Amino acid sequence: MTEALQNHDADDDVRLLERYRAGDERAATELVARHAPALARFAVSLGERDDVEELVQDTFVRAFGALESFRAESSLRTWLFTIERRLILDRRRSLARRHARFEGGEADAATEHTALDHVVAEETQQRLQRALDRLSPLQREVFVLRVAEGRSYKEIAEIAGTTEGAARVHYHNAMRAMKEFVDA
């Protein structure tokens, strides 16, 4: 995503937030529609498979409940990613405390293509998922934020709670590891 497009989206988000704060509930619906798909992809990329919709909803509930703390120093989407990441970490800590074990199911990759297309797509998806699984959690997070979400290193650093330099290093290492695994 280009910087100009991100700035335009950020301006639209600010206008929608102003409308919501003024009592326009439709603005909240528009914000959810704009950002929910990216939040769902981010959650899945972090290993969440169950209750992704609920996690996205919880993210918005928490965000709308804390709008006064949003200072627009980063984009709304970056702030939402940060909230969702914290929710995921909180869930995992809670599960670990209860000694529960998370078991994720594979997403169904079925499409309307031919059987061969389906097999190739599934094999490619599994190969990429195995490559992602081999990354450290932080590398995977940085990789997904950069590649799938088009976030800047500054935004990635903010979301992941690290520095821009560290985000660049993690991305570089993740990219190298992904290429090595996929080329093997």
Score class of each variant (00 low, 15 high):
160 A>Q: 03
176 R>V: 15
11 D>C: 08
16 L>A: 02
125 Q>K: 06
167 A>P: 07
183 D>C: 11
53 E>N: 12
167 A>L: 00
1 M>D: 06
174 A>Y: 09
35 H>S: 04
43 A>N: 08
5 L>N: 11
35 H>Q: 00
72 A>T: 09
65 G>P: 12
114 T>Y: 12
113 H>Y: 08
155 E>H: 13
40 A>C: 01
39 L>F: 03
95 L>N: 12
66 A>W: 02
1 M>F: 14
13 D>W: 11
127 R>G: 02
181 F>W: 09
57 Q>R: 15
130 R>Y: 05
98 R>A: 10
127 R>M: 06
51 D>E: 09
46 L>R: 15
64 F>K: 02
7 N>P: 00
20 Y>K: 00
21 R>D: 00
20 Y>S: 01
107 A>V: 14
96 A>V: 02
8 H>A: 12
43 A>M: 07
177 A>R: 15
8 H>F: 14
157 A>P: 01
44 V>S: 10
102 F>V: 14
181 F>L: 05
119 V>Y: 07
124 T>A: 06
150 G>P: 08
113 H>M: 11
174 A>D: 06
10 A>K: 06
161 G>N: 00
113 H>W: 08
151 R>Y: 15
114 T>E: 12
67 L>E: 07
136 S>R: 01
18 E>G: 04
87 L>H: 14
110 A>H: 11
143 F>W: 13
35 H>D: 01
180 E>K: 12
87 L>I: 11
15 R>W: 00
159 I>F: 07
84 E>K: 05
134 R>L: 05
184 A>N: 14
64 F>H: 08
59 T>S: 11
112 E>N: 13
4 A>T: 07
151 R>L: 13
143 F>G: 00
36 A>R: 03
12 D>T: 11
130 R>E: 13
121 A>E: 11
2 T>N: 10
179 K>P: 03
103 E>G: 03
178 M>A: 03
111 T>H: 10
130 R>Q: 10
60 F>N: 05
